[in-house]
Amino acid sequence: MKAVVYTHYGTTDALKVKEVEKPAPKDNEVLIKVHAASVNSWDWDLLRGRPFLARLKGLLKPKYNILGADIAGRIEAVGSNVRSFLPGDEVFGDLSGCSWGGFGEYVCADENALSLKPAGMTFEEAAAIPQAGVLAL
């Protein structure tokens, strides 16, 4: 699968589109085909490694090589312990507490980080809600 990857802190020049291994869900995770992801200040902070607190999980190099926390997409597979979702469900959520990786074609996420996407909402609209919506509140 393709993903926007970074291996060192820096500016947008550090971002590269690369072919990476498609993730597989753990027992409590779902595999999501990402249809939309939004960019926000947390992505920028992690990319730059600033403020210094952004490096808590990766002092010298990033812990997560694929940014993107706010996503919307369709579930393709579920782990054996997942009870809230089924393959085919349309979901959205904030992955910053579990995995990041929304700037890839696929991402795995803990089921607790997700909600069902409202039927009348586009994937793009849903992906813009999680962090921006909470900050607006």
Rank of each mutant, 00 (worst) to 15 (best):
K63G: 08
G133I: 01
E21T: 14
E90Y: 04
K16E: 14
D89W: 00
D13W: 02
D94T: 10
K57F: 13
G79E: 03
S84V: 01
V30H: 03
G97I: 08
P87R: 04
D70L: 07
G79K: 02
V5N: 04
L67D: 03
I75H: 02
T122M: 00
L137N: 11
S115R: 12
L114E: 12
D45T: 03
V17S: 11
A24E: 13
Y9F: 15
E124V: 02
A128P: 02
F52G: 02
Y106T: 10
A109Y: 09
L114Y: 04
E19F: 05
S84F: 13
K2S: 05
R48S: 15
G120W: 03
A127V: 06
I129A: 01
S96I: 05
D70R: 03
D43M: 10
P130K: 04
W42G: 02
F85P: 13
G133R: 01
C98N: 12
E124C: 00
G133P: 06
A132L: 03
D70N: 06
V39Y: 05
L53K: 14
L86P: 00
K22Q: 13
F85H: 07
Y9N: 06
P51T: 11
P62L: 12
G104L: 11
N112Q: 11
K26Y: 07
P51G: 13
L15S: 06
G88N: 06
L114C: 11
S99W: 04
L135C: 12
V30N: 08
E90C: 13
S41H: 14
A54K: 06
V91G: 06
L15Q: 06
G58L: 09
K2R: 14
G73F: 02
V82W: 07
N28T: 10
K61W: 12
D110E: 12
K63W: 05
V39G: 08
L116R: 12
G120H: 07
K61R: 15
S96P: 01
S38G: 11
H8S: 15
G120Q: 05
P51R: 11
D43R: 11
T11G: 15
V20P: 01
D43Y: 07
E105R: 11
I71Q: 00
A136W: 10
P130A: 01
F52W: 10
E29N: 03
G120S: 07
L31M: 08
R74H: 01
G49R: 04
D27C: 00
P51D: 07
C98L: 05
L137G: 12
L56M: 13
S41C: 06
W44E: 14
M121L: 15
S38H: 00
S115F: 10
P118N: 10
Y6N: 12
D110M: 01
L114Q: 06
A54L: 09
A14W: 03
L67A: 11
G88A: 10
D43G: 13
V82R: 10
Y106F: 15
A132R: 02
E76Q: 13
T7C: 05
F92T: 07
R50P: 00
V4L: 15
D70E: 08
H8G: 11
I32R: 01
T7Y: 14
T12R: 09
I129S: 00
G133S: 07
V5T: 03
F92C: 06
D43T: 09
G93V: 01
D27Q: 08
G68D: 09
A132T: 04
L59F: 14
